[in-house]
């Protein structure tokens, strides 16, 4: 296994307060890492540091061994995609046009027809092909999130013509989705990981996290509280410590979604 992403001594301070404090982290290529932690633990800040959106106040993030700050934005867009938390849109683009933003200006040697095909495939994959011509602004929160997922998938497809070793960051990707689509988005992510993609996702649901993660990163007050496979990290003592909840270990079903994918 090779390391695709590495954080060294990563810190981020804003107005004197440390939001992320001295985090060292390595992410294996082709793995699915779930970032967990209570509200305000610094999950979103960590994601924004890892995708290059924020510049760390100390430390550095390396993508394939290259410091993020040395990678120009256009090239970085071929190497990693980010799915944001709920997004609104300034203008009445259709779902197809929003997904098309993922391939506009990206990729090498892609014809107009190629790009259209990538957009169509991504819409199918995110189960929003039937919304293709709808105005994004009139969609429900969950539908919007799935269209954003399609856009991110399209970006990865276009980007793979330049860089095969890609990273996908999902910040609470399933927050506004119904159960079926929560599982569908995570199943798609899992499937992409099987094909070699590296995924880092912020989730709130411990059961889902335990079910799909190769690795768990547990954050508390901006520090790395624990790191490892789900069964080593999600112990009752640690959960009590970090989340302040009492939890019976055997209450975690081993495969929480075997029951749901029809």
């Amino acid at each position: 296994m090779t390391i695709i992403l590495e954080a060294r001594g990563l810190s981020y301070r804003r107005s004197g307060r440390a939001l992320i404090e001295d985090i060292d982290l390595t992410i294996q290529e082709g793995s699915l890492t779930v970032v967990l932690g209570p509200n305000g633990a610094g999950k979103s800040t960590l994601m924004r540091l890892l995708c290059g959106e924020l510049a760390p106040t100390a430390g550095t993030v390396l993508l394939n061994g290259v410091p993020l700050r040395n990678i120009p934005a256009w090239l970085l867009a071929h190497k990693r995609a980010v799915m944001p938390q709920a997004s609104d849109l300034a203008f009445p683009f259709t779902a197809t046009e929003v997904t098309g933003l993922g391939v506009e200006g990206l990729g090498r040697g892609l014809s107009r027809a190629d790009r259209q095909r990538l957009v169509f495939e991504s819409l199918e994959q995110a189960d929003v092909a039937h919304l293709a011509r709808r105005n994004y602004q009139t969609l429900s929160g969950g539908e919007r999130q799935r269209v954003q997922f399609a856009r991110v998938l399209a970006q990865l497809k276009a980007g793979s013509t330049v860089e095969k070793r890609q990273l996908l960051l999902l910040d609470e990707p399933i927050a506004s989705l119904d159960l079926k689509h929560q599982l569908a988005v995570l199943a798609t992510a899992r499937e992409l990981v099987r094909k070699g993609l590296t995924v880092i996702a912020v989730l709130h649901d411990l059961q889902l996290a335990a079910g799909i993660a190769d690795d768990i990163v547990l954050l508390q007050d901006g520090h790395l509280a624990a790191r490892g496979t789900p069964d080593t990290v999600l112990t009752p003592t640690r959960l009590a410590e970090v989340f302040g909840v009492i939890l019976k270990e055997d209450a975690l079903p081993p495969h929480p979604w075997a029951l749901a994918m029809a």
Binding site: E53, A73, H78, V82, P84, L89, A90, L101, G105, Q155
Partner: peptide, 14 residues
């Protein structure tokens, strides 16, 4: 076009 998604999203798109 990318900015209509938001500034962070536009940056993510390169």
């Amino acid at each position: 076009n990318a900015l209509s998604l938001g500034e962070a999203e536009a940056f993510h798109l390169g």
